[in-house]
Write a protein that binds this DNA or RNA. Structure first.
Length: 446
DNA sequence: TGAAATGTTGGGGCG
DNA sequence: ACGCCCCAACATTTC
């Protein structure tokens, strides 16, 4: 009897899961395992919102696995130690997992692979969290693309991997299953949150996909920039934790586009957003140093003002600029922020408050339910003008005209800053016209 | 996936 | 009818 482990990480689903499907096809029994990693859980950039959301996804995954005939094993502890114990407890001869492109994960996975092989266990990793991997999209000279548009052209030319069916588990008699912890509570992991989370788990993700593909996707390009509307996909937390696969998303929206010619342009813009997500994953894989420095190294020693009081005002949504404050309050109270507003608040922090993009990046990571190193870092470096294919440093949003353009009736602002047009609302903490010139001067020294 | 500064044009008021 | 000025509207340049 061939027993395999499937190591769940950011692929918390049973449908269209590459490594899991492979394991089920190649082994007589597959034992699914999730290991809580204290290194990740105690990292300063890990926040309660995403951990809370992940726990709900895991609870849902556990049920789904049970319904599919299996049993999900939970462990907590040093990954190498726990993996080694689980392998010994099960007599598994193969380990399957989906690849992760973050610097920490790559190191961790290389260690685990070496350990498994030393125990005589085959290791199979698979492409899963992206449609196309870093090695698959390089220029003719073998170097990575640094500009989005040619990258996206190459991305679209590649054949798409198939969408895989839901798996079933088998638990033959004699199967040695390892001990499992009960799913821990958020508090047991050292976190707490008051957030009301969006529906979590694979079924919720697929419901949202169906709703989007036949609804907002048809008007995506036209409506996506209006934060008062529900006109974006809101897939980000699902894509982050893998309750939804990018292949499944792509197949669904493309099926709609084929049957609905007028919607084609609208949906193309959405597909580009999926490609942006992969672009930043590839950038992180090729240039892991972007995780803690500017892609353009000449900006690493910019003299940011980094004023603690201004930063606190930004975090708490009391800058006196209604669109900025609305965005930050949406983040703080829901764990999510509309992308247009993410760009506005990011530009405001860096170019109006002259605070380093890294302070904002960290704050977002701690507050977002979709906290994702590659996308978040890419977005921040784009806004700050320090990244690859970033917006030029002089392209500075005016928070007032952005609000007029994208929230013309003030509906979004009012929903998070009800006091915006009363005397209770504070005066702007800085003058945009003045700060803009300071930011230009700061960057011009480079 | 900008916005401000600067330049140009042309209509209209007025003497 | 003409020159002059103002300035809105639009275009281009600059950051």
């Amino acid at each position: 009897m061939k027993v395999a482990l499937h190591w769940f990480r950011c692929d918390l689903r049973l449908s269209d899961n590459t490594a899991l499907s492979l394991a089920v096809a190649q082994a007589d029994a597959v034992i699914p395992v999730f290991i809580f990693d204290p290194v990740v859980l105690t990292a300063p950039e890990t926040g309660a919102p995403i951990v809370a959301f992940m726990l709900e996804c895991l609870a849902s995954l556990e049920k789904n696995i049970e319904a599919a005939g299996g049993r999900l094993i939970f462990r907590y502890g040093d990954i190498e130690t726990e993996m080694s114990k689980v392998l010994r407890e099960t007599d598994a001869t193969a380990l399957y997992y989906n690849r992760d492109y973050e610097p920490y994960a790559r190191k961790r996975d290389a260690t685990v692979e070496k350990l498994a092989r030393s125990l005589g266990v085959e290791v199979h990793s698979a492409k899963d969290g992206v449609v196309h991997e870093p090695e698959e999209i390089v220029k003719a000279d073998g170097k990575p693309y640094l500009v989005f548009t040619p990258f996206s052209r190459a991305w679209k030319l590649l054949p798409k991997p198939p969408v895989l069916p839901v798996v079933k588990f088998r638990r033959p008699s004699g199967l040695k299953e390892p001990k499992s912890l009960p799913l821990p509570t958020l508090e047991a992991l050292g976190f707490s949150t008051e957030l009301t989370l969006p529906p979590a788990g694979e079924k919720a993700a697929r419901d949202r996909l169906r709703q989007f593909a036949f609804g907002a996707a048809l008007r995506y390009a036209s409506r996506r920039n209006f934060p008062a509307e529900d006109s974006t996909s809101r897939f980000s937390p699902h894509l982050r934790l893998g309750t939804l696969s990018p292949r499944t998303v792509l197949a669904s929206v493309e099926a709609v586009a084929r049957q609905n010619l007028p919607a084609r342009k609208e949906i193309e813009t959405f597909v580009n957003e999926l490609i942006w997500r992969e672009f930043y994953r590839h950038i992180l894989w090729h240039f892991p140093q972007v995780a803690d420095s500017c892609f353009k190294p000449q900006y690493n020693d910019l003299k940011w003002e980094n004023d603690d009081r201004r930063f606190a005002a930004w975090c708490e949504g009391r800058t006196g600029y209604p669109i900025v404050d609305a965005g930050m309050r949406q983040l703080n109270t829901t764990g999510w922020m509309h992308n247009r507003v993410r760009m506005i608040v990011a530009t405001f922090l860096t170019k109006d408050l002259l605070v380093s993009w890294q302070w904002g990046e960290r704050y977002f990571m701690r507050k977002l339910i979709d906290a994702d190193l590659a996308s978040n870092n890419g977005g921040w470096q784009w806004s700050a003008g320090t990244g690859t294919d970033a917006q030029p440093y002089f392209r500075i949003f005016n928070p007032t005209s952005q609000a007029l353009k994208f929230d013309p009736e003030g509906r979004y602002i009012r929903s998070y800053v009800p006091e915006a047009d009363t005397l209770a609302y504070p005066a702007p903490i800085v003058d945009h016209a003045v700060q803009r010139l300071k930011a230009l001067a700061l960057f011009k020294t480079k």
